[in-house]
Structure formats: C-alpha cells, structure tokens
C-alpha cells in the first residue's frame, strides 16, 4: 500500500505508549495495531482527529504517501 503510517515514530518522539494512545483516542489496542501495521483500509476522520489531538501533531506527520512507481513522483521513505 502506498500510504505509510509513521505512528510508531511519532509515538516514540512523544514518549508515549500504544496502550496509552489507544485509551486517550478511545479505540482498542487491536485496532491501533491494525493502523500501525498498515493493514487498515480506511481511517475515520474522527479517529484521525483524536490521534492528532492526543499527539499534538498534523495528519501529515502520521500519514505519508510513497508511490509504488518512483517515476510518478511522491515522497518515498
């Protein structure tokens, strides 16, 4: 999937644990794990809003786009 989740990195920067974030956001740890592992097919705006609020960051800090075909451009990590 060309959408990359940088949640682990943001969590490490904030010195916060996944369990803590799940509690603040109000989602299960299993769902947070799905999000972190990149298996999620969609993220609700309400969830994204809660995560950004809890981590005091922008959606762009958590999500990044990496094109599978480098000639098409896009940020690659």
């Amino acid at each position: 999937m060309p959408i990359i989740i940088n949640l682990d990195q943001v969590l490490a920067d904030r010195n916060m644990k996944s369990k803590e974030l799940a509690e603040i956001v109000g989602i299960t740890e299993a769902n947070l794990s799905i999000l972190k592992s990149g298996k999620a097919k969609a993220v609700r705006f309400s969830t994204l809003e809660a995560i950004c609020e809890a981590l005091d960051c922008q959606p762009g800090d958590i999500l990044a786009f990496s094109s599978p075909n480098p000639s098409q451009g896009g940020e690659s990590n």
């Binding site: 799905i34 999620a40 097919k41 969609a42 609700r44």
Partner: peptide
C-alpha cells in the same frame, strides 16, 4: 465486511 473490519 473486510473493509469495515479494517476501518479504524
């Protein structure tokens, strides 16, 4: 259903 299950 799969898509719904994988929506966070």
């Amino acid at each position: 259903k799969e898509e719904n299950d994988l929506t966070v």
